Every structure is written in C-alpha cells, then in structure tokens.
Computed example of a mutant assay.
Amino acid sequence: MASPSSHTRPTGLAIWLIIAGVIGWFAAFNLTVEKIDRLADPGASASCDFSVLVQCSANLDSWQGSVFGFSNPILGLTGWVAPIVVGAA
C-alpha cells in the first residue's frame, strides 16, 4: 500500500512574488506619476534623474517610452499585478 504523499506549499516563493510584485507595482506607479508631471510641466526634471547614465525623463520622453501609443509604465501598472495574484493564490 502506497503511503499518502504530502505536498507542501512553496510559501517562500509566494512571499517573494508578493514582495517583488508590490515593489514593481510601486515603481511603475511612480513612473506613471512622473510621466503625468512631465506632461503638465515639460521643463521639470524627474525625481529619478540621477546622472547622465540614469535618466528617467529622457527615457519617458523617447519614442521607446511609448511604443504602443501610451506610456510604458502603464503596462507595468497592469503587469506587476500578476506576480501579486500568483503569490496570493
């Protein structure tokens, strides 16, 4: 007679997915707010402009920053919900 196998839930992975999803969603939300601020005041610099190499405002204003016709951080707002849902499930 076979003994019943016990399946353990990967709680560590679930917690990691929830934390990473919340951090990613928060970053996408901040980038979306920065894009809206840049649309309201084109001369303002973004809070994530650290140096010549790291410039959020230059990336948000480029054609690659809105490949599908809208700002790419909006994709992050919708996409980062998936790891949160998977981790919670």
Rank of each mutant, 00 (worst) to 15 (best):
N30M: 13
G24A: 06
G24D: 04
P10R: 13
T11I: 13
P4H: 11
D61M: 11
P83V: 03
I74S: 04
A58M: 07
W25E: 03
D41S: 09
I19Y: 06
A82W: 12
A46E: 02
A20L: 11
S47W: 13
A40G: 00
F50P: 04
D61K: 11
G24I: 05
F68M: 12
A58D: 15
V22L: 13
A2Y: 07
F50L: 15
Q64Y: 13
D61S: 14
V81I: 15
S57D: 15
P10G: 04
I23D: 01
A28I: 03
A14L: 09
V52A: 14
V85R: 05
V67G: 02
A58R: 10
P73C: 11
D37C: 05
G65D: 09
A82C: 03
A89C: 08
T8L: 09
V54R: 03
A82V: 15
A2G: 07
S57W: 06
L39G: 02
G65S: 06
T8D: 15
A20D: 05
A2C: 04
I23P: 00
G43H: 11
N72C: 01
A88D: 03
V33F: 02
F26P: 00
E34I: 03
L75F: 14
N72Q: 10
E34G: 00
G69S: 08
L77I: 09
K35E: 15
I84Q: 01
L60A: 13
A27N: 04
D49K: 05
L77F: 00
A40C: 00
A40L: 14
N59I: 13
I23T: 06
N59D: 14
F29D: 02
V85T: 04
C48T: 12
G69Q: 10
G79S: 02
D37G: 07
E34V: 06
S57M: 05
W63A: 11
P42N: 04
D37M: 11
W16H: 08
G43C: 01
E34R: 05
I84V: 12
